[in-house]
């Protein structure tokens, strides 16, 4: 995935079954953000792989003052990339088991 300067990783081990999974997001490279970044730290949250939209979570982070509006897209894309990877890994595991 593209290096957005925002890291998103699993905050728990993926058992491959749960649809709601804990993720952790933090800014690794503030220079890649458009807005002036104030260090908010690592943000942990749960994400429903089937129902939720990464951009909507990013919007909520903006609304909560964790990011500026100008960085909503980059945060959303970072979450989207990680979610896609998690889904891809799950699909691969399922097809391997078959």
């Amino acid at each position: 995935a593209e290096d957005t300067g925002v890291r998103v990783e699993l905050a728990e081990e993926d058992d491959g079954k749960k649809t709601s999974i804990a993720l952790r997001l933090w800014v690794e490279d503030p220079k890649k953000l458009k807005g002036k970044y104030k260090d908010s730290g690592a943000i942990e949250f749960t994400f429903d792989l089937n129902k939720e939209v990464p951009e909507a979570v990013a919007q909520e982070m903006v609304d909560s003052g964790l990011f500026l509006d100008s960085d909503m897209k980059i945060v959303g894309r970072s979450i989207r990339d990680r979610v896609a990877l998690i889904k891809w890994r799950r699909e691969r595991t399922i097809s391997r088991d078959k």
Partner: peptide
């Protein structure tokens, strides 16, 4: 604990805590 809980108007919970040193990219 240094973790702060942020609850959004949509009811989502964000748990914010300091990023460990080793996680940060060397500047």
């Amino acid at each position: 604990s240094t973790t702060t809980e942020v609850v959004t108007s949509a009811g989502r919970r964000f748990f914010v805590s300091p990023v460990p040193e080793f996680r940060l990219k060397e500047q």
